[in-house]
Amino acid sequence: MDALDKLGISWQLLLSQIVNFGLLMIILQQLLYKPVLNMLEQRRQRIAEGLEQADKASHAAAEAEAEKQAILEEARREAQEVRAQATRDAERIAQDVRSRADQEAQEIRMKAQADAEAQTAAVMADARKQIADLTIAATEQILGRELANRDEQERFVADYLAQQNGSGS
């Protein structure tokens, strides 16, 4: 025991140190380890949650982006279709208008031609009549007398002119 005494070991002090350590451990367990480990666990969960949410959010964003792209694509396709349709319609209408215009023009031309022909015929008939009259008058004057059979004369001249006309044209 003398050796222990020289080393300063006494059972009272030894016991006090053991008790001290036990108390310190219990106090720190309640005061430090438990709250800190709880806090660490809590924070770990929070971070895991946050990461998960961020993951979800980025997923959602990617989905939204894809959807947007799809909608844009659809819209573009539709616009393309509408434009093509419009172009086709416009062409068809233009075609219509052109053909109708052509037709009308044709009609107008034909009518004009018919008119002109009728006029010409009328003028020609008139001219023939006048020529016949003038011819008769001239002949009367030259012969100095009136042809006895006036109707016969007129028929004769008309036949002649018709003959001329038929061979001349």
């Binding site: 080393l7 300063g8 070991i9 006494s10 002090l13 030894l14 006090s16 140190q17 001290n20 350590f21």
Partner: peptide, 8 residues
């Protein structure tokens, strides 16, 4: 202090 180290 040997008391402490011995106690531990």
């Amino acid at each position: 202090d040997l008391n402490m180290t011995l106690a531990l």
